[in-house]
Design a protein around this nucleic acid. Structure first.
Lengths: 227, 227, 227, 227
DNA sequence: TATGAATGAGGATTCATTCAT
DNA sequence: GATGAATGAATCCTCATTCAT
């Protein structure tokens, strides 16, 4: 029997498909869970969007709930890695680092489907406490610590005023979460739902908050007037 | 069956209960929708919590979906009334007005069950675009306009720097929404889920943001160091 | 609105139906479980045979497994009561009592749908150990004890030879169980499946076994030649 | 991959395995069908226990139902062969022959997995009438005839009383079937399920029944007191 | 042949909604 | 109006069977 040219000798088509399945299913599940919510998404929809049948989904994930966990887990690593990578070994003013971090998080996470995970968690946290706890430990706490330490560094170095790092961190993060929730909750709303310009909002936030944090008379390096 | 003597001559107990039914049902529904989400709340639960039977619920609301709409509609007025009332006729620095508004909103709305409406809307907006649109028109836009005008007033009067009012408004509102979502999404989580101290966070926000907004060298009247 | 004459003032139709439901469902379930086996019986079939819809079944029993348990429980009392009732206060030769007991059990239980419970238990015991244990404690052990004590009484009084009561009991019971299983397993087989004449078989069993048990030269009172 | 040297020159390992497949599958199926029942046994389990994959099972048997039929058919021959072999050319008292037959059947069939076939048949007879009919023709009728003829021989020779051979046969067989069903239905029950001592029960049965069959004053050769 | 990924019909269970009382 | 028994569409998940490799 003649072979079609170059079938990539090592991995047959079936095999390659099999290896791709989990990712395809996770992507489909993420998109649908963000869009319609966890409960309102039928498992068959997920399968269909991933191009497989109902049964195939259960070949890879034993239940819809486990699928949700896998979706969260898989996207967590991405989220966490980003932040830590940027912060590590940054030299320069803390205000610059924070500005970069906020902008980058939005571009790398907030705007992407992964940014919708917050929406899922918020909606289902009380029905799946285990997941909420997981998300808290794996995402919220590390992210908070990362920002919190920077704020404290700014305070310690005299760059910032003597502000409470814990609360400042929440205030810094809040607008980004708000933005992500807004985008994924109302995103492609057919009607007029005020389309927030995320870029401008983030620049404004950086401008105001960092200015509010800085000890007096220290000029900002990043010029917010460009936004 | 013996009746307790004279239960207010005009309106008998039965009568009052009957008239109170819709409100009791809406309250029960709000609490449950906020806690468990719309889909995960069984209509019988709502009825039971309101002290009536399943069938009675349908006497007042023709479907669970209409009940949700009614819950949102009814609570919108409450939400809206607050803001406007406070702002009207306020004399004094805009920064003070904003500070009062933020604190008051949290106390009057954010902390109450009504503050959970955001959670419901976020979770269900894409499944009920009509409601999202309604919420946008009735709550988001007016609230935004209210704050936005104040910010602009501060800019125009020279109290604030020349900032874009639209974006600043989002940045000001975001932490409150974040707080409300956090409280209602993770609220009585059995596990460690970082309990945010809302009061301190709001004061910190006021401190930082208003300082970030003010034109240089204008001292803040409300002393944030007390928080 | 005029009432139809004599609606039985106390219990309305709906009420009476409701009270009858559990029994109707248990009867339907017993019949179907015996006929087709537990696993092969769809819960909707049970409901339909009881004249209600799928959902109604779950109003009364929370799962198919609980339904099975209820079926067994409800029929156990009947089975157990029979035996004890007959034995209590019987005066006369033990062989006569045993003969009566065997005949009666067949008529009152073995031949009736309840006799099919053995078939269900046998088929599902290893999948539902809890049920097997329950049946063992509630039916097998008491029934065995009842017979066993009589045999021992016969031995002690010199009416029977010195036989091991425990084993004799099994030998006495076995043909009845065999008969019940046979009847309910092959019962209305369209094809020729040897229709055992239960009456004649039981009389033959009584004849042979009691004769085998009796100490020599004691004549049997019940004349087996009539069978 | 190195092969162990010379695995029997004629038939290579692979070859022998292939030829053994059907038997391995039938054995696995028998064990599982007896243990869990036909419906509750997944075909993949059967394959796995036989050391092959799901698909391979279907290479040999076109459906689970056909597999069940094959299991039963294949084990019938084993069951049948036993009885006939023993009876042929036996000289001596019929009571001795019957005693030997009962003991042998238990050892050769009842105790082995084949003894569990009764359980399968009983459970599924009404769902697979064809199989029930087949079993009846191939096993029950011949076995019955075998015993029946012996009983009749005993009666004709004056060794036994004038009993109805047909019914006596059922009474003789019943305890063995009962024993086999009990063993395979409750067998390795973790809990206290009365473990019947099959040996003692069979000896007791032989003692009582044969004594009950024998014409008066004919002593038994096999001494049951040893049991 | 042998494999195991894929399928989809089937079945248990839930729950919004209806309606007789 | 009020009730809650009844319904059956909807949904999760299982598993016998198929088929490309």
């Amino acid at each position: 029997m003649p072979m079609p040219a170059k079938p990539t000798p090592s991995t047959p088509v079936r095999q390659r498909r099999k290896e791709a399945r989990p990712q395809e299913l996770l992507d489909a599940a993420l998109a649908l869970f963000v869009e319609k919510g966890f409960a309102a998404t039928r498992s068959e929809e997920v399968a269909l969007r991933a191009g497989v049948s109902k049964g195939t989904l259960y070949l890879y994930y034993p239940s819809k709930e486990e699928l949700l966990k896998a979706v969260i887990r898989q996207n967590l690593s991405k989220i966490l890695a980003d932040g830590a990578g940027i912060a590590d070994g940054f030299e320069g003013p803390t205000s610059d680092l924070l500005a970069i971090l906020l902008r980058t998080w939005w571009e790398q996470v907030g705007e992407t489907p992964a940014g919708g995970i917050h929406k899922i968690i918020m909606a289902e946290a009380r029905n799946f406490p285990e997941i909420a706890e997981f998300y808290n430990q794996e995402v919220i706490v590390p992210a908070h610590d990362l920002i919190s330490k920077m704020v404290q560094r700014g305070v310690d170095s005299g760059e910032f005023r003597a502000v409470p790092a814990h609360e400042v961190t929440h205030v810094l993060i809040a607008p980004l979460i708000f933005l992500a929730l807004h985008k994924h909750a109302f995103g492609p709303c057919p009607v007029g739902m005020d389309e927030i310009d995320a870029g401008r909002m983030i620049e404004t936030q950086i401008d105001i908050m960092l200015r509010g944090l800085l000890a007096r008379d220290v000029p900002l390096r990043s010029d917010p007037s460009k936004a």
